[in-house]
Design a protein around this nucleic acid. Structure first.
Lengths: 111, 111
DNA sequence: ATGAATATGTAGCAATGCTACGTATCGATT
DNA sequence: AATCGATACGTAGCATTGCTACATATTCAT
């Protein structure tokens, strides 16, 4: 997967991964990897800062817990986050539809 | 359309717009706008530098012409550009498939 | 005891598209 | 003739974003 391909679409994926219930960062990475047949194997340096960014934007909220001696920061969607996820889905459909159409047709000669 | 959405996908669209035959920059903008139902109305500050970038990468080549008093820099795909366009199409299918799957399913809870 | 897996985090970088300019010609309107 | 919109090219600087590389710590299997 090209490195830059994800730009601008990561937030939607993160929100989607939290839709079914709260997760901690490491688990988000696994969900994204497994749910994409290995296409998205994101480094922690990508995911952790992004989750904090979403928290800053009020789309998720986090809390600490400790599970078998390991501390976890668990993230959860806020109502605004659910709305944003909806928006992202709509935006993605428009965007991907437009790109697919353009890539497919090549384009008829103009002038 | 979100501003960052396009990041990493513009090159493929530009190459696709040139597939049917040579075009100048302004015409590329029109093809992208009309071929996407207005979703992609790209500013010249996006398209012109990107075309030069593609030329630097050897994927397109350009030449000047003058049409009714206006100078035009016309771009054309190179063989490498056609190969790159093919690659972009494959990459896009993988990428968009993975994103669509993740956005759709939300994701089953993982401990 | 050693290393892999689990778990979190940051500093700094590279890439990319956009904003806001600037220049110039042509055709239509006033 | 003057003005304005469309056509046509371009650049400097910015903001955002994801990645690389690193640092830390615990648990579990070898």
């Amino acid at each position: 997967m090209r490195a830059e391909a994800l730009k601008g679409h990561l937030d939607g994926l993160l929100l989607a991964s939290l839709e079914a219930g709260p997760l901690h960062g490491y688990a988000v990475i696994e969900v994204l990897r497994d749910g994409s047949s290995g296409h998205f194997d994101l480094p922690t340096g990508t995911v952790y800062p992004a989750l904090r960014r979403l928290e800053g934007a009020g789309l998720v909220q986090s809390g600490w817990s400790v599970v078998s001696g390991r501390r976890r920061r668990t993230y959860e969607l806020t109502p605004a986050g659910r709305r944003a996820l909806n928006d992202q889905r709509t935006l993605w459909d428009e965007f991907s539809g437009a790109v697919s159409a353009l890539l497919r047709r090549g384009a008829e000669a103009a002038t």
